[in-house]
Protein backbone atom coordinates (compact mmCIF):
# COMPACT_ATOMS: atom_id res chain seq x y z
CA UNK A 1 0.00 0.00 0.00
CA UNK A 2 3.04 2.24 -0.06
CA UNK A 3 2.51 4.35 -3.13
CA UNK A 4 -1.10 3.70 -3.89
CA UNK A 5 -2.32 4.82 -0.49
CA UNK A 6 -6.10 4.76 -0.37
CA UNK A 7 -6.53 3.62 -3.96
CA UNK A 8 -7.67 0.03 -4.31
CA UNK A 9 -5.19 -2.46 -5.66
CA UNK A 10 -6.82 -4.30 -8.46
CA UNK A 11 -4.81 -7.42 -9.27
CA UNK A 12 -6.39 -7.83 -12.66
CA UNK A 13 -5.54 -4.26 -13.59
CA UNK A 14 -1.93 -4.56 -12.45
CA UNK A 15 -1.58 -7.79 -14.36
CA UNK A 16 -3.04 -6.19 -17.47
CA UNK A 17 -0.57 -3.32 -17.05
CA UNK A 18 2.38 -5.72 -16.96
CA UNK A 19 0.99 -7.58 -19.95
CA UNK A 20 0.68 -4.35 -21.93
CA UNK A 21 4.17 -3.23 -20.99
CA UNK A 22 5.71 -6.54 -21.98
CA UNK A 23 3.85 -6.37 -25.29
CA UNK A 24 5.03 -2.76 -25.73
CA UNK A 25 8.65 -3.67 -25.04
CA UNK A 26 8.39 -6.54 -27.53
CA UNK A 27 7.04 -4.26 -30.24
CA UNK A 28 9.88 -1.83 -29.56
CA UNK A 29 12.65 -4.43 -29.47
CA UNK A 30 11.44 -6.81 -32.20
CA UNK A 31 12.38 -4.78 -35.32
CA UNK A 32 15.91 -4.28 -34.02
CA UNK A 33 16.23 -7.88 -32.87
CA UNK A 34 15.15 -9.17 -36.28
CA UNK A 35 17.65 -6.83 -37.92
CA UNK A 36 20.39 -8.16 -35.65
CA UNK A 37 19.45 -11.76 -36.46
CA UNK A 38 19.52 -10.98 -40.17
CA UNK A 39 22.91 -9.31 -39.85
CA UNK A 40 24.47 -12.52 -38.52
CA UNK A 41 23.47 -14.76 -41.42
CA UNK A 42 25.19 -15.31 -44.76
CA UNK A 43 23.47 -13.65 -47.70
CA UNK A 44 22.40 -16.94 -49.27
CA UNK A 45 20.10 -17.74 -46.34
CA UNK A 46 17.69 -15.04 -47.48
CA UNK A 47 17.07 -16.75 -50.79
CA UNK A 48 16.12 -20.00 -49.14
CA UNK A 49 13.95 -18.24 -46.57
CA UNK A 50 15.86 -19.83 -43.72
CA UNK A 51 16.06 -16.70 -41.57
CA UNK A 52 14.01 -17.16 -38.45
CA UNK A 53 14.31 -15.81 -34.95
CA UNK A 54 17.77 -17.18 -34.14
CA UNK A 55 21.13 -15.54 -34.90
CA UNK A 56 23.45 -17.17 -37.41
CA UNK A 57 27.21 -17.61 -37.22
CA UNK A 58 28.42 -14.88 -39.58
CA UNK A 59 28.31 -11.92 -37.25
CA UNK A 60 32.05 -11.27 -37.20
CA UNK A 61 32.56 -11.73 -40.94
CA UNK A 62 29.61 -9.52 -41.86
CA UNK A 63 30.46 -6.61 -39.56
CA UNK A 64 34.23 -6.72 -39.92
CA UNK A 65 33.85 -7.01 -43.69
CA UNK A 66 31.53 -4.03 -43.90
CA UNK A 67 33.63 -1.75 -41.72
CA UNK A 68 37.00 -2.75 -43.13
CA UNK A 69 36.43 -3.79 -46.73
CA UNK A 70 32.97 -2.52 -47.67
CA UNK A 71 29.97 -4.30 -49.07
CA UNK A 72 31.97 -5.60 -52.03
CA UNK A 73 29.75 -3.67 -54.41
CA UNK A 74 30.63 -0.94 -56.86
CA UNK A 75 30.56 2.47 -55.20
CA UNK A 76 30.32 1.29 -51.61
CA UNK A 77 33.53 2.04 -49.73
CA UNK A 78 34.21 0.51 -46.30
CA UNK A 79 31.80 1.80 -43.67
CA UNK A 80 34.58 2.76 -41.28
CA UNK A 81 34.80 6.08 -43.10
CA UNK A 82 31.05 6.70 -42.98
CA UNK A 83 30.97 5.98 -39.24
CA UNK A 84 33.82 8.41 -38.73
CA UNK A 85 32.03 11.06 -40.81
CA UNK A 86 28.85 10.58 -38.78
CA UNK A 87 30.78 10.91 -35.53
CA UNK A 88 32.49 14.11 -36.66
CA UNK A 89 29.18 15.55 -37.83
CA UNK A 90 27.36 14.67 -34.61
CA UNK A 91 30.14 16.07 -32.41
CA UNK A 92 30.47 19.16 -34.60
CA UNK A 93 26.76 19.91 -34.46
CA UNK A 94 26.49 19.29 -30.72
CA UNK A 95 29.59 21.26 -29.73
CA UNK A 96 28.90 24.00 -32.29
CA UNK A 97 25.31 24.54 -31.20
CA UNK A 98 26.21 24.57 -27.52
CA UNK A 99 29.14 26.98 -28.00
CA UNK A 100 27.40 29.60 -30.10
CA UNK A 101 24.20 29.40 -28.05
CA UNK A 102 25.83 29.81 -24.65
CA UNK A 103 27.77 32.84 -25.93
CA UNK A 104 24.58 34.40 -27.35
CA UNK A 105 22.66 33.79 -24.15
CA UNK A 106 25.48 35.38 -22.16
CA UNK A 107 25.41 38.48 -24.37
CA UNK A 108 21.64 38.79 -24.16
CA UNK A 109 21.41 38.29 -20.39
CA UNK A 110 24.43 40.18 -19.10
CA UNK A 111 24.75 43.19 -21.40
CA UNK A 112 22.57 46.07 -22.51
CA UNK A 113 23.29 47.28 -25.99
CA UNK A 114 21.50 48.72 -29.00
CA UNK A 115 19.62 46.14 -31.09
CA UNK A 116 19.59 43.62 -28.25
CA UNK A 117 15.89 42.95 -28.86
CA UNK A 118 16.51 42.63 -32.60
CA UNK A 119 19.23 40.04 -32.02
CA UNK A 120 16.87 38.07 -29.82
CA UNK A 121 14.18 38.00 -32.51
CA UNK A 122 16.66 37.08 -35.24
CA UNK A 123 17.63 34.04 -33.19
CA UNK A 124 13.99 33.24 -32.46
CA UNK A 125 13.13 33.22 -36.16
CA UNK A 126 15.45 30.26 -36.82
CA UNK A 127 12.86 28.10 -35.04
CA UNK A 128 10.52 28.72 -37.92
CA UNK A 129 13.03 27.87 -40.63
CA UNK A 130 13.97 24.18 -40.47
CA UNK A 131 16.17 23.02 -43.32
CA UNK A 132 13.24 21.23 -44.97
CA UNK A 133 11.64 24.61 -45.58
CA UNK A 134 14.56 26.41 -47.20
CA UNK A 135 16.08 23.39 -48.81
CA UNK A 136 17.14 24.61 -52.24
CA UNK A 137 18.31 28.17 -51.44
CA UNK A 138 20.39 26.87 -48.52
CA UNK A 139 21.95 24.33 -50.81
CA UNK A 140 22.83 27.12 -53.24
CA UNK A 141 24.46 29.19 -50.48
CA UNK A 142 26.54 26.21 -49.36
CA UNK A 143 27.50 25.44 -52.96
CA UNK A 144 28.42 29.10 -53.48
CA UNK A 145 30.74 28.98 -50.47
CA UNK A 146 32.35 25.81 -51.94
CA UNK A 147 31.32 23.85 -48.90
CA UNK A 148 29.78 20.87 -50.72
CA UNK A 149 31.38 17.60 -49.67
CA UNK A 150 33.04 19.13 -46.61
CA UNK A 151 32.42 18.71 -42.89
CA UNK A 152 31.88 22.47 -42.67
CA UNK A 153 29.07 22.28 -45.20
CA UNK A 154 27.47 19.47 -43.21
CA UNK A 155 27.74 21.16 -39.85
CA UNK A 156 27.59 24.96 -40.17
CA UNK A 157 24.06 25.37 -41.60
CA UNK A 158 22.65 23.27 -38.75
CA UNK A 159 24.23 24.88 -35.72
CA UNK A 160 22.16 28.02 -35.19
CA UNK A 161 19.84 27.21 -32.31
CA UNK A 162 17.09 29.22 -30.71
CA UNK A 163 16.11 26.38 -28.40
CA UNK A 164 19.58 26.05 -26.91
CA UNK A 165 19.92 29.83 -26.57
CA UNK A 166 16.60 30.02 -24.69
CA UNK A 167 17.62 27.14 -22.47
CA UNK A 168 20.88 28.83 -21.44
CA UNK A 169 19.04 32.11 -20.95
CA UNK A 170 16.68 30.36 -18.55
CA UNK A 171 19.60 28.84 -16.66
CA UNK A 172 21.36 32.21 -16.40
CA UNK A 173 18.22 33.92 -15.14
CA UNK A 174 18.20 31.60 -12.11
CA UNK A 175 21.77 32.52 -11.15
CA UNK A 176 21.59 35.09 -8.35
CA UNK A 177 22.68 38.64 -9.13
CA UNK A 178 24.73 38.65 -5.92
CA UNK A 179 27.14 36.32 -7.62
CA UNK A 180 27.69 38.74 -10.47
CA UNK A 181 28.10 41.59 -7.97
CA UNK A 182 30.64 39.63 -5.97
CA UNK A 183 32.55 38.71 -9.10
CA UNK A 184 32.61 42.32 -10.25
CA UNK A 185 33.71 43.47 -6.80
CA UNK A 186 36.61 41.02 -7.02
CA UNK A 187 37.58 42.62 -10.29
CA UNK A 188 36.49 39.79 -12.57
CA UNK A 189 35.81 40.88 -16.14
CA UNK A 190 32.85 39.54 -18.11
CA UNK A 191 34.86 36.78 -19.77
CA UNK A 192 36.37 35.59 -16.49
CA UNK A 193 32.88 35.56 -14.96
CA UNK A 194 31.56 33.60 -17.93
CA UNK A 195 34.35 31.07 -17.89
CA UNK A 196 34.80 30.57 -14.13
CA UNK A 197 31.22 30.95 -12.91
CA UNK A 198 28.57 30.62 -15.62
CA UNK A 199 30.04 27.65 -17.48
CA UNK A 200 30.68 25.55 -14.34
CA UNK A 201 27.20 26.37 -13.01
CA UNK A 202 25.60 25.26 -16.29
CA UNK A 203 27.58 22.01 -16.38
CA UNK A 204 24.66 19.57 -16.11
CA UNK A 205 22.56 21.59 -18.55
CA UNK A 206 25.40 21.49 -21.03
CA UNK A 207 25.76 17.74 -20.58
CA UNK A 208 22.03 17.11 -20.97
CA UNK A 209 21.89 19.28 -24.05
CA UNK A 210 24.91 17.53 -25.46
CA UNK A 211 23.17 14.15 -25.22
CA UNK A 212 20.12 15.41 -27.11
CA UNK A 213 22.15 17.26 -29.73
CA UNK A 214 24.50 14.34 -30.33
CA UNK A 215 21.51 12.16 -31.19
CA UNK A 216 20.05 14.96 -33.32
CA UNK A 217 23.32 15.38 -35.18
CA UNK A 218 24.00 11.69 -35.70
CA UNK A 219 20.50 11.19 -37.11
CA UNK A 220 20.63 14.00 -39.68
CA UNK A 221 19.52 12.67 -43.05
CA UNK A 222 18.17 15.18 -45.56
CA UNK A 223 21.02 17.64 -45.30
CA UNK A 224 23.90 15.11 -45.65
CA UNK A 225 21.99 13.56 -48.54
CA UNK A 226 22.13 16.86 -50.41
CA UNK A 227 25.55 18.13 -49.40
CA UNK A 228 27.61 14.95 -49.73
CA UNK A 229 27.54 13.74 -53.31
CA UNK A 230 30.60 11.51 -53.27
CA UNK A 231 30.78 8.27 -51.33
CA UNK A 232 33.91 9.23 -49.39
CA UNK A 233 31.97 11.94 -47.54
CA UNK A 234 28.74 10.07 -46.94
CA UNK A 235 27.53 9.42 -43.40
CA UNK A 236 26.35 6.08 -42.10
CA UNK A 237 22.70 7.08 -42.59
CA UNK A 238 23.04 8.07 -46.21
CA UNK A 239 25.09 4.92 -46.86
CA UNK A 240 22.33 2.70 -45.57
CA UNK A 241 19.76 4.17 -47.92
CA UNK A 242 22.02 3.77 -50.94
CA UNK A 243 22.94 0.24 -49.93
CA UNK A 244 19.31 -0.73 -49.36
CA UNK A 245 17.99 0.64 -52.63
CA UNK A 246 20.76 -0.54 -54.95
CA UNK A 247 21.48 -3.80 -53.26
CA UNK A 248 17.97 -5.16 -53.00
CA UNK A 249 17.38 -4.61 -56.69
CA UNK A 250 20.43 -6.56 -57.77
CA UNK A 251 21.40 -9.19 -55.26
CA UNK A 252 19.81 -9.79 -51.86
CA UNK A 253 22.37 -8.37 -49.45
CA UNK A 254 19.90 -7.95 -46.61
CA UNK A 255 22.48 -9.25 -44.14
CA UNK A 256 24.73 -6.29 -44.99
CA UNK A 257 21.87 -3.77 -45.05
CA UNK A 258 20.77 -4.89 -41.60
CA UNK A 259 24.34 -4.87 -40.26
CA UNK A 260 24.61 -1.28 -41.50
CA UNK A 261 21.31 -0.44 -39.79
CA UNK A 262 22.60 -1.87 -36.51
CA UNK A 263 25.84 0.12 -36.86
CA UNK A 264 23.81 3.27 -37.57
CA UNK A 265 21.54 2.93 -34.54
CA UNK A 266 24.01 1.57 -32.00
CA UNK A 267 25.90 4.78 -31.07
CA UNK A 268 22.87 7.02 -30.37
CA UNK A 269 20.99 4.21 -28.60
CA UNK A 270 24.05 3.53 -26.45
CA UNK A 271 24.15 7.23 -25.54
CA UNK A 272 20.53 7.09 -24.31
CA UNK A 273 20.99 3.88 -22.36
CA UNK A 274 24.24 4.98 -20.71
CA UNK A 275 23.15 8.54 -19.97
CA UNK A 276 19.46 8.04 -19.36
CA UNK A 277 19.13 10.64 -16.63
CA UNK A 278 20.81 13.35 -18.68
CA UNK A 279 18.79 12.33 -21.72
CA UNK A 280 15.46 12.70 -19.91
CA UNK A 281 16.57 16.02 -18.42
CA UNK A 282 17.71 17.29 -21.80
CA UNK A 283 14.54 16.25 -23.54
CA UNK A 284 12.21 17.84 -21.03
CA UNK A 285 14.30 21.01 -20.79
CA UNK A 286 14.50 21.68 -24.49
CA UNK A 287 10.99 20.34 -25.18
CA UNK A 288 11.92 19.95 -28.78
Amino acid sequence: MARDGMVERDRGLTLAAHGLLILGCTVMVLPVYLAFVASTHPGADFLSGRIGFLPGDRMLENYAGLIGAGAGLQGFPPLGGALWNSLLMALGIAIGKISISILSAFAICYFRFPFRQTAFWLIFITLMLPVEVRILPTYKVVAGLSLLNTQGGLILPLIASATATFLFRQVFMTIPDEMTEAARMDGAGPLAFFWHILVPLSRTNIAALFVILFIYGWNQYLWPLMVTTDAAHSTILTSIQRLASTATQEAPVWHLVMATAILALLPPVAVILLMQRLFVQGLTETEK
Partner: peptide
Protein backbone atom coordinates in the same frame (compact mmCIF):
# COMPACT_ATOMS: atom_id res chain seq x y z
CA UNK B 1 17.92 41.01 -18.76
CA UNK B 2 19.77 40.60 -15.49
CA UNK B 3 19.65 43.48 -13.04
CA UNK B 4 23.39 43.38 -12.58
CA UNK B 5 25.12 43.58 -15.91
CA UNK B 6 28.55 44.16 -17.36
CA UNK B 7 29.61 47.30 -19.16
CA UNK B 8 30.81 46.72 -22.69
CA UNK B 9 30.16 48.07 -26.12
CA UNK B 10 31.88 45.76 -28.53
CA UNK B 11 31.92 42.55 -26.47
CA UNK B 12 28.20 41.66 -26.66
CA UNK B 13 28.28 41.95 -30.44
CA UNK B 14 31.36 39.74 -30.61
CA UNK B 15 29.61 37.16 -28.43
CA UNK B 16 26.57 37.19 -30.67
CA UNK B 17 28.52 37.29 -33.91
CA UNK B 18 28.86 33.52 -34.58
CA UNK B 19 25.17 32.82 -33.98
CA UNK B 20 24.01 35.82 -35.98
CA UNK B 21 26.42 35.15 -38.85
CA UNK B 22 25.10 31.60 -39.21
CA UNK B 23 21.52 32.80 -38.88
CA UNK B 24 21.92 35.40 -41.61
CA UNK B 25 23.96 33.31 -44.05
CA UNK B 26 22.19 29.97 -43.74
CA UNK B 27 18.70 30.92 -42.54
Amino acid sequence: AKRVIFPGRLLPYLLLAPQLAITVVFF
